[in-house]
């Protein structure tokens, strides 16, 4: 049920993650890997889940993403009608790099109106991949804006549905008005190698940003 092989206890000396605070008594029975997070964003139905599934070592898992209005007055147990929570599916997968390091891929919900809860998913991410369907370019503006404003390294990946791209990459770049340093590429969300290469482009962006 674990996502990938479990780390060997004591198998390495570097501490990849620091416990939030040392528990009163308990020690983690096993040392967890350091989780590195990438976010897969884009409009509705552009192939985010497909991309995660192509490369994840587990079937993409789905969870309900953040609750909205914090449900003040949650002690009111009969409050279903005035419930102000929204649940949306967020799916994710992972790739074990080695027992000490694991890459997580999180797909944001596609609809623009869920932008408010991206923070909950994106917090701490090293980079983002914005997937674009050239037949519906404007669907990805929200994601592009989001990463630009937060200065999160990202790349734009045009998903070539049926091998066809309706616009050239230059046209896409022009239409999205992304800055020069942002890579724009074509990929196939169903192809593991293609998704891998798109993620590598994002990671290279992140590496350049880190000064490495």
């Amino acid at each position: 049920m674990a996502c990938g092989p479990s780390p060997t206890p004591g198998g390495y000396s570097v501490t990849p993650t620091e416990p939030l605070a040392r528990p009163a008594a308990g020690q983690a029975a096993v040392r967890p890997p350091l989780p590195v997070k990438l976010v897969i964003a884009g409009g509705f139905g552009v192939g985010k889940t497909t991309a995660v599934g192509s490369i994840s070592e587990i079937e993409p898992l789905t969870t309900e993403a953040a609750i909205t209005e914090v449900a003040a007055g949650v002690d009111d147990l009969s409050h279903t009608p005035r419930k102000t929570t929204t649940t949306v599916a967020m799916d994710f997968g992972c790739i074990t790099i080695d027992p000490t390091l694991k890459l997580y891929l999180f797909g944001t919900p596609g609809q623009e109106r869920f932008g408010f809860m991206w923070d909950d998913i994106v917090e701490g991410a090293v980079g983002g991949l914005v997937i674009v369907d050239t037949r519906r370019l404007d669907d990805c503006y929200a994601a592009v804006d989001y990463f630009e404003h937060r200065q999160i390294p990202f790349a734009v990946a045009v998903n070539a549905f049926d091998g066809k791209v309706e616009h050239s990459l230059d046209e896409v770049r022009w239409a999205l008005d992304v800055s020069e340093g942002v890579p724009v590429l074509v990929f196939d969300a169903r192809e593991r190698g293609s998704v891998r290469d798109a993620l590598l482009v994002v990671l290279e962006q992140a590496l350049a940003r880190s000064g490495g």
Binding site: L34, P35, V36, K37, I55, I95, I97, D98, L101, L103, G124, V126, R192, R196, L199, L200, L203, E204, A206, L207, S210, G211, G212
Partner: peptide, 17 residues
């Protein structure tokens, strides 16, 4: 997680897929 050495390890691991 944003450290260059960590990102390089992720890149190398991903390239091996």
């Amino acid at each position: 997680t944003h450290d260059a050495s960590v990102l390089r390890r992720v890149i190398d691991g991903l390239r091996a897929i």
